[in-house]
Design a binder for these strands. Sequence first.
DNA 1: AAAAAATTTTACCATTTGGTAAATACACGA
DNA 2: TCGTGTATTTACCAAATGGTAAAATTTTTT
Lengths: 211, 211
Amino acid sequence: MTQENQTDKKPSRIQTRNRKMILDAALEVFSRHGYRGTTLDQIAAEAGLSKPNILYYFDGKAEIHVTLLNRLMTSWLDPLIKLNAEGDPRHEILSYVQRKLDMARDLPQESRLFAGEILQGAPRMSPDLERHLKPLFDEKCALIQRWIDEGALPSLNPQHLIFSIWATTQHYADFDAQVRVLLDTPDETHARASRHLAQMFGALLSLPEAR
Amino acid sequence: MTQENQTDKKPSRIQTRNRKMILDAALEVFSRHGYRGTTLDQIAAEAGLSKPNILYYFDGKAEIHVTLLNRLMTSWLDPLIKLNAEGDPRHEILSYVQRKLDMARDLPQESRLFAGEILQGAPRMSPDLERHLKPLFDEKCALIQRWIDEGALPSLNPQHLIFSIWATTQHYADFDAQVRVLLDTPDETHARASRHLAQMFGALLSLPEAR
DNA sequence: AAAAAATTTTACCATTTGGTAAATACACGA
DNA sequence: TCGTGTATTTACCAAATGGTAAAATTTTTT
Protein backbone atom coordinates (compact mmCIF):
# COMPACT_ATOMS: atom_id res chain seq x y z
CA MET A 1 0.00 0.00 0.00
CA THR A 2 1.30 3.46 -0.81
CA GLN A 3 1.45 6.18 1.78
CA GLU A 4 -0.01 9.33 0.37
CA ASN A 5 -0.90 11.18 3.51
CA GLN A 6 1.22 13.63 5.42
CA THR A 7 0.08 11.76 8.49
CA ASP A 8 2.88 9.30 7.72
CA LYS A 9 6.31 10.03 9.07
CA LYS A 10 8.87 11.72 6.86
CA PRO A 11 8.33 12.56 3.19
CA SER A 12 11.32 11.64 1.07
CA ARG A 13 13.19 14.23 -1.00
CA ILE A 14 11.57 12.87 -4.12
CA GLN A 15 8.18 13.02 -2.52
CA THR A 16 8.48 16.65 -1.47
CA ARG A 17 9.75 17.64 -4.87
CA ASN A 18 7.04 15.83 -6.81
CA ARG A 19 4.19 16.93 -4.61
CA LYS A 20 5.33 20.49 -5.12
CA MET A 21 5.58 20.05 -8.88
CA ILE A 22 2.10 18.59 -8.97
CA LEU A 23 0.59 21.35 -6.86
CA ASP A 24 2.28 24.05 -8.92
CA ALA A 25 1.04 22.46 -12.12
CA ALA A 26 -2.43 21.98 -10.72
CA LEU A 27 -2.60 25.59 -9.57
CA GLU A 28 -1.74 26.73 -13.04
CA VAL A 29 -4.35 24.54 -14.70
CA PHE A 30 -7.14 24.83 -12.13
CA SER A 31 -6.82 28.62 -12.05
CA ARG A 32 -7.15 28.81 -15.81
CA HIS A 33 -9.88 26.24 -16.42
CA GLY A 34 -11.70 25.72 -13.15
CA TYR A 35 -12.23 22.41 -11.40
CA ARG A 36 -14.33 20.58 -13.96
CA GLY A 37 -12.45 22.17 -16.83
CA THR A 38 -9.21 20.66 -15.63
CA THR A 39 -8.16 17.09 -16.48
CA LEU A 40 -5.60 14.97 -14.73
CA ASP A 41 -3.81 14.63 -18.05
CA GLN A 42 -3.41 18.39 -18.23
CA ILE A 43 -1.97 18.50 -14.74
CA ALA A 44 0.28 15.56 -15.56
CA ALA A 45 1.56 17.20 -18.72
CA GLU A 46 2.17 20.50 -16.94
CA ALA A 47 3.98 18.72 -14.13
CA GLY A 48 5.98 16.52 -16.46
CA LEU A 49 4.72 13.34 -14.83
CA SER A 50 2.43 10.55 -15.91
CA LYS A 51 -1.18 10.45 -14.79
CA PRO A 52 -0.87 7.30 -12.67
CA ASN A 53 2.22 8.77 -11.12
CA ILE A 54 0.20 11.76 -10.00
CA LEU A 55 -2.35 9.44 -8.47
CA TYR A 56 0.48 7.88 -6.55
CA TYR A 57 0.94 11.14 -4.69
CA PHE A 58 -2.67 12.26 -4.40
CA ASP A 59 -5.79 10.21 -3.90
CA GLY A 60 -7.55 11.93 -6.76
CA LYS A 61 -8.36 15.11 -8.55
CA ALA A 62 -10.53 16.35 -5.71
CA GLU A 63 -7.76 15.95 -3.15
CA ILE A 64 -5.38 18.02 -5.23
CA HIS A 65 -7.97 20.74 -5.52
CA VAL A 66 -8.76 20.75 -1.82
CA THR A 67 -5.07 20.82 -0.94
CA LEU A 68 -4.62 23.91 -3.08
CA LEU A 69 -7.64 25.57 -1.57
CA ASN A 70 -6.41 24.97 1.96
CA ARG A 71 -2.93 26.24 1.16
CA LEU A 72 -4.56 29.27 -0.42
CA MET A 73 -6.54 30.28 2.64
CA THR A 74 -3.38 31.05 4.59
CA SER A 75 -1.84 33.47 2.13
CA TRP A 76 -5.28 34.88 1.57
CA LEU A 77 -5.87 35.89 5.15
CA ASP A 78 -2.35 37.13 5.75
CA PRO A 79 -2.70 40.74 4.50
CA LEU A 80 -5.85 41.25 6.54
CA ILE A 81 -4.25 39.79 9.67
CA LYS A 82 -1.59 42.48 9.40
CA LEU A 83 -4.19 45.23 9.79
CA ASN A 84 -2.84 46.62 13.02
CA ALA A 85 -5.08 47.94 15.77
CA GLU A 86 -2.20 50.02 17.14
CA GLY A 87 -1.37 51.82 13.91
CA ASP A 88 -2.87 54.95 12.38
CA PRO A 89 -6.30 53.97 11.04
CA ARG A 90 -6.07 55.70 7.66
CA HIS A 91 -2.56 54.47 7.07
CA GLU A 92 -3.43 50.94 8.14
CA ILE A 93 -6.32 50.67 5.73
CA LEU A 94 -4.49 52.27 2.82
CA SER A 95 -1.57 49.92 3.42
CA TYR A 96 -3.95 47.01 3.38
CA VAL A 97 -5.25 48.14 0.00
CA GLN A 98 -1.72 48.19 -1.35
CA ARG A 99 -0.88 44.78 0.09
CA LYS A 100 -3.97 43.34 -1.54
CA LEU A 101 -3.16 44.97 -4.84
CA ASP A 102 0.37 43.64 -4.73
CA MET A 103 -1.04 40.20 -4.07
CA ALA A 104 -3.25 40.41 -7.12
CA ARG A 105 -0.14 41.16 -9.15
CA ASP A 106 2.15 38.61 -7.53
CA LEU A 107 -0.27 35.72 -7.06
CA PRO A 108 -2.81 36.01 -9.87
CA GLN A 109 -3.26 32.26 -10.10
CA GLU A 110 -4.22 32.01 -6.46
CA SER A 111 -6.61 34.90 -6.91
CA ARG A 112 -8.30 33.26 -9.86
CA LEU A 113 -8.49 29.91 -8.14
CA PHE A 114 -10.23 31.55 -5.23
CA ALA A 115 -12.52 33.57 -7.47
CA GLY A 116 -13.52 30.50 -9.44
CA GLU A 117 -14.33 28.60 -6.30
CA ILE A 118 -16.48 31.41 -4.89
CA LEU A 119 -18.13 32.01 -8.25
CA GLN A 120 -19.39 28.45 -8.24
CA GLY A 121 -20.85 28.80 -4.80
CA ALA A 122 -17.73 27.77 -2.84
CA PRO A 123 -18.77 24.08 -2.85
CA ARG A 124 -15.47 22.86 -1.42
CA MET A 125 -14.54 25.93 0.55
CA SER A 126 -17.46 27.20 2.56
CA PRO A 127 -16.38 25.34 5.73
CA ASP A 128 -13.03 27.11 5.48
CA LEU A 129 -14.72 30.43 4.91
CA GLU A 130 -16.85 29.95 8.01
CA ARG A 131 -14.01 28.74 10.16
CA HIS A 132 -11.18 31.03 9.16
CA LEU A 133 -12.34 33.97 7.10
CA LYS A 134 -15.50 34.85 8.98
CA PRO A 135 -13.93 35.27 12.45
CA LEU A 136 -11.11 37.37 11.04
CA PHE A 137 -13.53 39.44 9.01
CA ASP A 138 -15.72 40.08 12.04
CA GLU A 139 -12.73 41.01 14.16
CA LYS A 140 -11.40 43.52 11.65
CA CYS A 141 -14.83 45.00 11.06
CA ALA A 142 -15.12 45.54 14.79
CA LEU A 143 -11.72 47.20 14.80
CA ILE A 144 -12.71 49.59 12.02
CA GLN A 145 -15.97 50.31 13.80
CA ARG A 146 -14.00 51.17 16.92
CA TRP A 147 -11.86 53.59 14.95
CA ILE A 148 -15.02 55.20 13.64
CA ASP A 149 -16.54 55.46 17.09
CA GLU A 150 -13.35 57.08 18.34
CA GLY A 151 -13.65 59.66 15.59
CA ALA A 152 -10.46 58.53 13.90
CA LEU A 153 -12.38 57.66 10.72
CA PRO A 154 -15.50 59.09 9.12
CA SER A 155 -18.71 57.17 9.52
CA LEU A 156 -18.78 54.33 7.02
CA ASN A 157 -19.77 50.69 6.71
CA PRO A 158 -16.76 48.54 7.64
CA GLN A 159 -18.09 45.40 6.00
CA HIS A 160 -18.78 47.00 2.67
CA LEU A 161 -15.53 48.92 2.84
CA ILE A 162 -13.66 45.64 3.03
CA PHE A 163 -15.74 44.23 0.18
CA SER A 164 -14.79 47.23 -1.91
CA ILE A 165 -11.14 46.72 -1.16
CA TRP A 166 -11.31 43.07 -2.10
CA ALA A 167 -13.31 43.74 -5.23
CA THR A 168 -11.18 46.55 -6.61
CA THR A 169 -7.85 44.89 -5.98
CA GLN A 170 -8.70 41.36 -7.05
CA HIS A 171 -10.30 42.75 -10.17
CA TYR A 172 -6.85 43.22 -11.68
CA ALA A 173 -6.08 39.52 -11.35
CA ASP A 174 -9.50 37.99 -11.91
CA PHE A 175 -10.56 40.18 -14.83
CA ASP A 176 -7.08 40.43 -16.25
CA ALA A 177 -8.28 39.28 -19.67
CA GLN A 178 -10.69 42.20 -19.82
CA VAL A 179 -8.24 44.70 -18.42
CA ARG A 180 -5.71 43.71 -21.06
CA VAL A 181 -8.22 44.23 -23.84
CA LEU A 182 -9.20 47.67 -22.58
CA LEU A 183 -5.85 49.17 -21.58
CA ASP A 184 -3.10 49.94 -24.07
CA THR A 185 -0.21 50.15 -21.64
CA PRO A 186 -0.09 46.91 -19.67
CA ASP A 187 3.19 47.71 -17.93
CA GLU A 188 1.73 50.81 -16.31
CA THR A 189 -1.44 49.13 -15.09
CA HIS A 190 -0.22 48.29 -11.63
CA ALA A 191 1.21 51.71 -10.87
CA ARG A 192 -1.90 53.48 -12.13
CA ALA A 193 -4.21 51.17 -10.26
CA SER A 194 -2.19 51.78 -7.14
CA ARG A 195 -2.51 55.57 -7.47
CA HIS A 196 -6.19 55.37 -8.30
CA LEU A 197 -7.05 53.15 -5.35
CA ALA A 198 -4.96 55.30 -2.99
CA GLN A 199 -6.88 58.32 -4.22
CA MET A 200 -10.28 56.67 -4.00
CA PHE A 201 -9.96 55.08 -0.58
CA GLY A 202 -8.00 58.10 0.61
CA ALA A 203 -10.93 60.31 -0.31
CA LEU A 204 -13.39 58.03 1.44
CA LEU A 205 -11.35 57.83 4.63
CA SER A 206 -10.69 61.57 4.74
CA LEU A 207 -14.32 62.55 4.37
CA PRO A 208 -15.25 65.29 6.84
CA GLU A 209 -17.64 63.94 9.46
CA ALA A 210 -21.25 64.47 8.46
CA ARG A 211 -23.37 66.39 10.99
CA MET B 1 -32.50 18.21 -42.58
CA THR B 2 -33.50 20.29 -39.62
CA GLN B 3 -33.34 24.04 -39.67
CA GLU B 4 -31.67 25.29 -36.56
CA ASN B 5 -30.52 28.69 -37.63
CA GLN B 6 -32.36 31.93 -37.30
CA THR B 7 -31.25 32.57 -40.87
CA ASP B 8 -34.25 30.48 -41.90
CA LYS B 9 -37.54 32.25 -42.33
CA LYS B 10 -40.06 32.13 -39.51
CA PRO B 11 -39.55 30.33 -36.22
CA SER B 12 -42.69 28.48 -35.13
CA ARG B 13 -44.35 29.19 -31.80
CA ILE B 14 -42.97 25.94 -30.43
CA GLN B 15 -39.54 26.83 -31.67
CA THR B 16 -39.48 30.24 -30.00
CA ARG B 17 -40.74 28.77 -26.78
CA ASN B 18 -38.25 25.92 -26.65
CA ARG B 19 -35.26 27.98 -27.67
CA LYS B 20 -36.08 30.32 -24.84
CA MET B 21 -36.50 27.47 -22.35
CA ILE B 22 -33.15 26.06 -23.40
CA LEU B 23 -31.35 29.37 -23.13
CA ASP B 24 -32.87 30.08 -19.73
CA ALA B 25 -31.87 26.65 -18.50
CA ALA B 26 -28.41 26.95 -19.98
CA LEU B 27 -27.89 30.35 -18.38
CA GLU B 28 -28.75 28.88 -15.02
CA VAL B 29 -26.41 25.93 -15.39
CA PHE B 30 -23.51 27.65 -17.17
CA SER B 31 -23.52 30.48 -14.63
CA ARG B 32 -23.31 28.03 -11.76
CA HIS B 33 -20.81 25.51 -13.14
CA GLY B 34 -18.94 27.22 -15.96
CA TYR B 35 -18.62 25.97 -19.52
CA ARG B 36 -16.76 22.72 -18.95
CA GLY B 37 -18.60 22.07 -15.73
CA THR B 38 -21.93 22.05 -17.53
CA THR B 39 -23.29 18.99 -19.29
CA LEU B 40 -25.96 18.85 -21.94
CA ASP B 41 -27.88 16.49 -19.68
CA GLN B 42 -27.97 19.12 -16.96
CA ILE B 43 -29.28 21.71 -19.38
CA ALA B 44 -31.79 19.21 -20.70
CA ALA B 45 -33.01 18.36 -17.21
CA GLU B 46 -33.29 22.02 -16.26
CA ALA B 47 -35.16 22.79 -19.45
CA GLY B 48 -37.40 19.76 -19.15
CA LEU B 49 -36.38 18.46 -22.55
CA SER B 50 -34.36 15.50 -23.76
CA LYS B 51 -30.76 15.89 -24.79
CA PRO B 52 -31.28 15.05 -28.47
CA ASN B 53 -34.19 17.43 -28.46
CA ILE B 54 -31.89 20.21 -27.35
CA LEU B 55 -29.51 19.35 -30.14
CA TYR B 56 -32.42 19.73 -32.49
CA TYR B 57 -32.54 23.42 -31.63
CA PHE B 58 -28.83 24.14 -31.22
CA ASP B 59 -25.88 22.72 -33.11
CA GLY B 60 -24.07 21.88 -29.90
CA LYS B 61 -23.03 22.92 -26.45
CA ALA B 62 -20.66 25.55 -27.77
CA GLU B 63 -23.38 27.23 -29.82
CA ILE B 64 -25.63 27.54 -26.79
CA HIS B 65 -22.83 29.11 -24.82
CA VAL B 66 -21.92 31.54 -27.54
CA THR B 67 -25.56 32.51 -28.03
CA LEU B 68 -25.81 33.35 -24.34
CA LEU B 69 -22.59 35.32 -24.42
CA ASN B 70 -23.74 37.38 -27.37
CA ARG B 71 -27.13 38.07 -25.80
CA LEU B 72 -25.30 39.06 -22.66
CA MET B 73 -23.14 41.70 -24.26
CA THR B 74 -26.14 43.86 -25.06
CA SER B 75 -27.54 44.10 -21.56
CA TRP B 76 -24.01 44.44 -20.32
CA LEU B 77 -23.21 47.56 -22.29
CA ASP B 78 -26.57 49.17 -21.77
CA PRO B 79 -25.95 50.91 -18.40
CA LEU B 80 -22.70 52.40 -19.66
CA ILE B 81 -24.31 53.59 -22.88
CA LYS B 82 -26.72 55.61 -20.80
CA LEU B 83 -23.87 57.64 -19.31
CA ASN B 84 -24.99 60.97 -20.68
CA ALA B 85 -22.54 63.58 -21.89
CA GLU B 86 -25.18 66.29 -21.39
CA GLY B 87 -25.95 65.49 -17.76
CA ASP B 88 -24.26 66.59 -14.58
CA PRO B 89 -20.96 64.66 -14.37
CA ARG B 90 -21.18 63.68 -10.72
CA HIS B 91 -24.80 62.68 -10.98
CA GLU B 92 -24.21 60.75 -14.17
CA ILE B 93 -21.44 58.66 -12.71
CA LEU B 94 -23.21 58.02 -9.42
CA SER B 95 -26.32 56.98 -11.34
CA TYR B 96 -24.20 54.62 -13.37
CA VAL B 97 -22.93 53.04 -10.17
CA GLN B 98 -26.49 52.46 -9.02
CA ARG B 99 -27.56 51.03 -12.36
CA LYS B 100 -24.68 48.60 -12.26
CA LEU B 101 -25.45 47.62 -8.70
CA ASP B 102 -29.09 47.04 -9.55
CA MET B 103 -27.96 44.84 -12.42
CA ALA B 104 -25.85 42.73 -10.09
CA ARG B 105 -28.96 42.18 -8.01
CA ASP B 106 -31.40 41.61 -10.84
CA LEU B 107 -29.22 39.63 -13.25
CA PRO B 108 -26.77 37.70 -11.07
CA GLN B 109 -26.66 34.77 -13.46
CA GLU B 110 -25.60 36.98 -16.32
CA SER B 111 -23.00 38.58 -14.12
CA ARG B 112 -21.55 35.23 -13.13
CA LEU B 113 -21.61 33.93 -16.68
CA PHE B 114 -19.63 36.96 -17.75
CA ALA B 115 -17.25 36.69 -14.81
CA GLY B 116 -16.58 33.03 -15.49
CA GLU B 117 -15.82 33.71 -19.11
CA ILE B 118 -13.39 36.51 -18.31
CA LEU B 119 -11.81 34.52 -15.50
CA GLN B 120 -10.88 31.82 -17.96
CA GLY B 121 -9.27 34.29 -20.31
CA ALA B 122 -12.38 35.14 -22.34
CA PRO B 123 -11.67 32.37 -24.87
CA ARG B 124 -15.01 32.75 -26.62
CA MET B 125 -15.60 36.39 -25.96
CA SER B 126 -12.50 38.42 -26.68
CA PRO B 127 -13.64 39.30 -30.21
CA ASP B 128 -16.83 40.71 -28.73
CA LEU B 129 -14.88 42.62 -26.12
CA GLU B 130 -12.70 44.17 -28.77
CA ARG B 131 -15.56 45.01 -31.11
CA HIS B 132 -18.20 46.24 -28.69
CA LEU B 133 -16.86 46.89 -25.23
CA LYS B 134 -13.56 48.51 -26.12
CA PRO B 135 -14.97 51.31 -28.32
CA LEU B 136 -17.65 52.14 -25.78
CA PHE B 137 -15.12 52.06 -22.97
CA ASP B 138 -12.79 54.39 -24.84
CA GLU B 139 -15.63 56.76 -25.66
CA LYS B 140 -16.80 57.02 -22.08
CA CYS B 141 -13.27 57.38 -20.75
CA ALA B 142 -12.80 60.28 -23.14
CA LEU B 143 -16.04 61.81 -21.91
CA ILE B 144 -14.94 61.59 -18.28
CA GLN B 145 -11.57 63.02 -19.21
CA ARG B 146 -13.34 65.94 -20.87
CA TRP B 147 -15.33 66.54 -17.70
CA ILE B 148 -12.09 66.57 -15.75
CA ASP B 149 -10.44 68.97 -18.17
CA GLU B 150 -13.44 71.27 -17.88
CA GLY B 151 -12.99 71.26 -14.10
CA ALA B 152 -16.34 69.57 -13.53
CA LEU B 153 -14.61 66.63 -11.86
CA PRO B 154 -11.43 66.31 -9.81
CA SER B 155 -8.40 64.88 -11.53
CA LEU B 156 -8.67 61.10 -11.61
CA ASN B 157 -8.00 58.17 -13.87
CA PRO B 158 -11.17 57.48 -15.91
CA GLN B 159 -10.18 53.97 -16.88
CA HIS B 160 -9.48 52.81 -13.37
CA LEU B 161 -12.53 54.63 -12.09
CA ILE B 162 -14.66 52.52 -14.39
CA PHE B 163 -12.82 49.38 -13.32
CA SER B 164 -13.57 50.22 -9.72
CA ILE B 165 -17.24 50.68 -10.49
CA TRP B 166 -17.41 47.37 -12.28
CA ALA B 167 -15.48 45.57 -9.59
CA THR B 168 -17.40 46.86 -6.60
CA THR B 169 -20.85 46.38 -8.08
CA GLN B 170 -20.34 43.00 -9.71
CA HIS B 171 -18.73 41.76 -6.54
CA TYR B 172 -22.17 41.39 -4.98
CA ALA B 173 -23.26 38.98 -7.71
CA ASP B 174 -20.01 37.18 -8.47
CA PHE B 175 -18.86 36.70 -4.88
CA ASP B 176 -22.35 36.22 -3.53
CA ALA B 177 -21.38 32.96 -1.83
CA GLN B 178 -18.71 34.76 0.17
CA VAL B 179 -20.90 37.76 0.93
CA ARG B 180 -23.59 35.48 2.27
CA VAL B 181 -21.14 33.76 4.59
CA LEU B 182 -19.81 37.03 5.97
CA LEU B 183 -22.98 39.09 6.36
CA ASP B 184 -25.74 38.20 8.80
CA THR B 185 -28.51 40.28 7.26
CA PRO B 186 -28.85 39.25 3.62
CA ASP B 187 -31.98 41.30 3.01
CA GLU B 188 -30.21 44.52 3.85
CA THR B 189 -27.16 43.86 1.71
CA HIS B 190 -28.33 45.69 -1.36
CA ALA B 191 -29.41 48.83 0.47
CA ARG B 192 -26.20 48.99 2.48
CA ALA B 193 -24.05 48.36 -0.56
CA SER B 194 -25.91 51.12 -2.34
CA ARG B 195 -25.26 53.62 0.44
CA HIS B 196 -21.64 52.60 0.80
CA LEU B 197 -20.89 52.90 -2.91
CA ALA B 198 -22.68 56.25 -3.13
CA GLN B 199 -20.56 57.45 -0.25
CA MET B 200 -17.30 56.11 -1.63
CA PHE B 201 -17.65 57.29 -5.21
CA GLY B 202 -19.29 60.48 -3.98
CA ALA B 203 -16.21 61.20 -1.90
CA LEU B 204 -13.89 60.49 -4.81
CA LEU B 205 -15.83 62.70 -7.22
CA SER B 206 -16.15 65.55 -4.75
CA LEU B 207 -12.47 65.71 -3.96
CA PRO B 208 -11.22 69.31 -3.94
CA GLU B 209 -8.85 69.85 -6.85
CA ALA B 210 -5.27 69.27 -5.80
CA ARG B 211 -2.90 72.17 -6.53
C1' DA C 1 25.89 -6.21 -3.48
C1' DA C 2 21.51 -7.94 -2.15
C1' DA C 3 17.15 -7.06 -0.20
C1' DA C 4 13.59 -4.02 0.68
C1' DA C 5 11.12 -0.07 -0.12
C1' DA C 6 9.78 3.60 -2.96
C1' DT C 7 8.74 5.28 -7.49
C1' DT C 8 7.28 5.01 -12.27
C1' DT C 9 5.37 2.88 -16.31
C1' DT C 10 2.33 -0.05 -19.05
C1' DA C 11 -1.90 -1.71 -19.98
C1' DC C 12 -6.23 -1.47 -18.80
C1' DC C 13 -11.37 -0.38 -17.27
C1' DA C 14 -15.93 1.85 -16.23
C1' DT C 15 -18.34 5.96 -16.60
C1' DT C 16 -19.46 10.14 -18.46
C1' DT C 17 -20.32 13.02 -22.15
C1' DG C 18 -21.11 15.35 -26.61
C1' DG C 19 -23.23 13.96 -30.40
C1' DT C 20 -25.91 11.08 -34.27
C1' DA C 21 -29.35 8.11 -36.92
C1' DA C 22 -33.48 6.64 -37.52
C1' DA C 23 -37.90 5.65 -36.05
C1' DT C 24 -42.06 7.68 -33.94
C1' DA C 25 -45.43 11.09 -32.46
C1' DC C 26 -47.39 15.46 -33.21
C1' DA C 27 -49.31 19.86 -35.18
C1' DC C 28 -51.69 22.04 -38.54
C1' DG C 29 -53.16 23.77 -43.03
C1' DA C 30 -55.72 22.10 -47.20
C1' DT D 1 -59.22 13.78 -42.13
C1' DC D 2 -55.44 13.30 -44.41
C1' DG D 3 -50.87 14.41 -45.63
C1' DT D 4 -46.72 16.87 -44.84
C1' DG D 5 -43.40 18.97 -42.45
C1' DT D 6 -42.19 19.66 -37.42
C1' DA D 7 -40.91 17.98 -33.09
C1' DT D 8 -39.52 14.23 -29.96
C1' DT D 9 -37.91 9.85 -28.47
C1' DT D 10 -35.19 5.60 -28.60
C1' DA D 11 -31.14 3.44 -29.19
C1' DC D 12 -26.83 4.09 -30.02
C1' DC D 13 -21.53 5.51 -30.58
C1' DA D 14 -16.75 7.31 -30.17
C1' DA D 15 -13.86 9.98 -27.46
C1' DA D 16 -12.48 11.67 -23.14
C1' DT D 17 -11.70 11.08 -18.44
C1' DG D 18 -10.93 9.58 -13.59
C1' DG D 19 -9.07 5.85 -11.82
C1' DT D 20 -6.74 0.90 -10.95
C1' DA D 21 -3.66 -3.35 -11.05
C1' DA D 22 0.39 -5.05 -11.54
C1' DA D 23 4.74 -5.24 -13.64
C1' DA D 24 9.12 -2.84 -14.07
C1' DT D 25 12.42 0.35 -12.54
C1' DT D 26 14.93 3.16 -9.43
C1' DT D 27 16.43 4.46 -4.86
C1' DT D 28 17.62 3.46 -0.26
C1' DT D 29 18.93 0.52 3.44
C1' DT D 30 21.49 -3.17 5.36
